[in-house]
Write a protein that binds this DNA or RNA. Sequence first.
DNA 1: AGTACCACCTGACGGC
DNA 2: TGCCGTCAGGTGGTAC
Length: 264
Amino acid sequence: MPELPDVEVFKRYVNSTSLHQKIESVEVRNTKILGGVSAGKLQSTLKGRMFESTRRYGKNLFVELDDGGWLLMHFGMTGRLKYFKDMDQDPPHDRFLISFENQYHLAFDCQRMLGKVDLIEDLEKFIGEKKLGPDLLELDSVSFRERFGGRKGAVKSALMNQQVVAGVGNIYSDEILFQARVHPGTEVGRLDDAALEKLFRETRRVLKAAIERGADPQKLPNSFLLSHRREGEKCPRGNGEIRKIKAAGRTAYYCPACQPKANC
DNA sequence: AGTACCACCTGACGGC
DNA sequence: TGCCGTCAGGTGGTAC
């Protein structure tokens, strides 16, 4: 689940629940979700501190501590956050639990444990080391075209490559390509400036619409592919039947009628 | 530079 | 009911 829109929603969730309160305790329930930091270091660093602000870059969420430094959260495939008071509300796959002085808790729930929690000193350094491309909501259309220009390979692969542009994964790449009427296997080099411009606009429109609706698939417009990700399902534009293929190593859903393979 | 494949994990689902 | 293979929206490594 957690692509750019989801992580942006998590960021706003942290902003509205967890800032400016003293952290009373920290519990690491499964060390597999830790990045480079040890459980002890994480506990000693967070205890007694407060969260001051948040930042998102691609699919990464950073939470700033009141004495500098950042808590990094990456949600993998199944990560999410939950803020609650009574421990009977503790989510089922709570791997990392922060307890505040106000008796509320923030849980990092991560069923498949592919998410990561870590401590970061320098955001720019982190982004540089990961070689992340620009965040998809931060770059303009010129930079977008530059990032794609001269690349080889399939457009879906490029959209999902965090080193090209950061934030989009399998689900939203399908959505963007559907909205832009581009077949997922289209070679990037076959897209002219107009097509890249269209792709850029649809990327922004899709991501922003998803964020506005809390990244909840149920709340997205019916014109979106997202809730029709089943083979044989009718295309939301009424043009064809949704098909499932392997593209860029992932399962891609698309509408052959809206997204013809003609110019791949 | 790109791609294909595997690994990391748990859990849900369909077939038998 | 139970067992087994397959698959799932992410990332990173390796080999080609």
